[in-house]
């Protein structure tokens, strides 16, 4: 057995372990509750709920780039499934994605992407895996919370205990456990959130991220930590786009609407298959700076791509202002 095969077997072993850890005894990657039960007919409306899988990418140089360049349209399994390919073949495919399918990839990003694919597929990088994991999408009704009676000091203590290790002491998303998580823990300081949204995210967690649901917190602790988390963020602003709104709307409809929805509610046609729900701007208002950053660089590990390769700075700024205008609390 040559060294290369040994290395590959090592990877398979790692994959097997990862899969066992994720799936317990069964080999079904999603538990039955997300399966056949998630379909129904109400009057004339027939609805299904798609199981959500969280894409996983091995660590290594180029990981975030791949995560923001490729995953808007397809999950990592599309890559992991392919037979062994050489660098030229991967490059040909990256270019096909750019040319034919409109992937937002800049010319100087092609080689870093190819190198990442080669390195990880040949298991030169062994940590992490390409396995997709079932993402928990089960959500319970969030308790009604009276935030006027919240105790911010107590909320801070709960936050320090339950949230700070990922979201950081001051909510900047830079806690010690943030490490290689994709998507990264949310920076809570760069947006205004509606109370309901914050309460739901804390109570139920965020699908296809490392954010768990804290439904076992006492009602008082939940209320206090929701209030404290909101206090780390921005105050909602009356956002008015400064440029030509018609142009911004046009850009939005062309590039954002299929995921974020016509009214910014995160309910576009591709939202149903998106593991982490696309941002709902009715309940989340990023700062201009933050929106600009997200639009430019994407959100690695979600389906939000980087747009700096496709849209000019002026266009991205117009979009940043435009999406802020959807907020309503």
């Amino acid at each position: 057995m040559n060294a290369k095969i040994k290395a590959s077997l090592g990877l398979l072993g790692a994959l097997a372990l990862a899969a066992c850890a994720d799936q317990g005894a069964g080999r079904n990657v999603n538990a039955a509750p997300t399966g056949s039960a998630a379909a129904g007919t109400s009057g004339q409306v027939h609805t299904i709920e798609m199981p959500k899988f969280q894409s996983d990418l091995p660590e290594g140089p180029g990981r975030e780039l791949v995560a923001t360049a490729c995953l808007s349209c397809h999950s990592t399994r599309y890559i992991a499934m392919q037979p062994p390919l050489n660098a030229a073949k991967w490059e040909e495919n990256v270019r096909k994605m750019m040319k034919t399918f409109g992937a937002p990839i800049a010319e100087d990003q092609v080689q870093p992407i190819v190198q990442y694919l080669m390195a990880t597929r040949e298991s030169k990088i062994s940590s992490g895996s390409w396995i997709v994991r079932a993402a928990n999408t089960e959500r319970k009704a969030t308790p009604k919370l009276d935030l006027t009676s919240a105790n911010l000091e107590k909320g801070k203590a709960v936050y320090a205990r339950a949230c700070a290790s990922c979201h950081g002491e001051k909510g900047a998303g830079n806690g010690v456990s943030a490490g290689p998580l994709l998507p990264r823990p949310t920076n809570l300081t760069h947006a205004a959130y509606s109370r309901e949204f914050m309460a739901d995210a804390i109570f139920n967690g965020v699908p296809a991220t490392a954010m768990p649901g804290f439904s076992t917190l006492s009602q008082d602790d939940l209320r206090d930590v929701v209030a404290y988390s909101l206090s780390l963020g921005q105050k909602p602003a009356d956002a008015k786009a400064s440029g030509d709104v018609a142009v911004a709307k046009d850009l939005y409809q062309q590039h954002c609407m299929n995921c974020h929805g016509a009214d910014g509610a995160g309910d576009g046609i591709a939202a149903g298959t998106s593991p982490r729900p696309p941002a709902n701007f009715k309940v989340k208002q990023p700062t201009n700076h933050h929106a600009m950053m997200i639009i430019s660089d994407g959100v690695a590990g979600s389906t939000m791509p980087q747009w700096k390769a496709k849209l000019s700075e002026a266009q991205r700024m117009q979009l940043a202002e435009y999406v802020r205008g959807f907020y309503q609390e």
Binding site: R27, V29, P51, S75, R77, P275
Partner: peptide
């Protein structure tokens, strides 16, 4: 060993099927 391992998955209105890709399915 370099081929993706086989997994089963259950999608709405479907039974356990072999999961090639999850998104698009």
């Amino acid at each position: 060993v370099q081929k993706a391992p086989m997994q089963m998955a259950r999608f709405p209105e479907k039974t356990d099927l072999i999961l090639l890709t999850d998104r698009p399915p």
